[in-house]
Nucleic acid binder design. Structure first.
Lengths: 148, 148
DNA sequence: CACATACATTTGTATATACAAATATTGTTT
DNA sequence: AAACAATATTTGTATATACAAATGTATGTG
């Protein structure tokens, strides 16, 4: 990826702003690749993330605040996000009997099956995204990202 | 930044998906910091980006497709983005006399002045964002990002 | 037990963005 | 010149997201 080429500029950009632009460009690219991988299933990255969290619960229901807490990108509106998964039949929602303020959200069988297919599709996306990376590169990148 | 802590998970995540999550988390953080730096001026990051491009034109007008080409995050709707800068008085817009399909957009004096202040604010944001980074770290990070 | 407070979610509303279709202008072909 | 295609922008519309207010439920205090 060549930053200057992508944003069609000839002049040299100082390292600090250049890194931010670079991060943004990479983010755009990753988002597009992942979005495309999920397109066949008609779920957004956020929805996919919620499904993954629910699978991690191993049958235990999660409520909205737990979901929000564990989401990679925190949302102000997890209710409507779950609504969409409900419509697709990927999750079930019920009022928590012990505390009726809460809702219990679980992933359905259909959701688990769809998620498996998504995983396969995402695996391919990974290959595409990381084609130029060695294991060492990835480790080093993670170390550097930790500094943020 | 500790990925596992932020998304409140105890289990180990494989390096490939972990890096993507890491990138997303860093992106969120950068966005928030930059957004806050720009908040006093009531411009979005995208709008700021357009102002910067226009300043780079050194008085020469830019049309919408040029702007879109040079934007870090390509938008489907640059018209409405420019609308908002117009309302704030940061840019002027006129029909191109030589080709009336095009519009000529230039940054105003007021826009340039505001942009200077934004630069100062962004400079502080950089300090905040990069506090744990050495020059070497930044160079290495840019090298790794190039692999995407 | 009435009251205030805290909690968890939902709803309303404004703004942002994506995508496609519409409009206007220019260039090209016959 | 009329017809058609290409270009540049604008508009309509659907969807996404952010933020604040509203709703319903639970808990603690006098």
């Amino acid at each position: 990826m060549n930053v200057e080429e992508i944003i069609k500029t000839s002049k040299e950009i100082p390292l600090e702003p250049r890194t931010l632009i670079h991060m943004q460009l990479v983010h755009n690219k990753i988002n597009e690749t992942m979005g495309n991988a999920l397109k066949p299933f008609e779920v957004s990255l956020q929805q996919f993330n919620v499904l993954r969290i629910l699978r991690g619960q191993k049958g235990q229901p999660a409520n909205l605040s737990t979901l929000n807490e564990r989401m990679v990108t925190k949302m102000s509106n997890t209710t409507r996000l779950v609504d969409k998964l409900l419509i697709k039949g990927f999750v079930d929602r019920a009022v928590c009997p012990s505390n009726r303020r809460k809702v219990e959200i679980v992933i359905t069988e259909s959701g688990l099956k769809a998620l498996e297919q998504m995983d396969a599709s995402l695996e391919k996306a990974h290959e595409e995204i990381y084609q130029n990376f060695s294991k060492e590169d990835l480790k080093k990148l993670n170390e550097l990202l930790d500094k943020f």
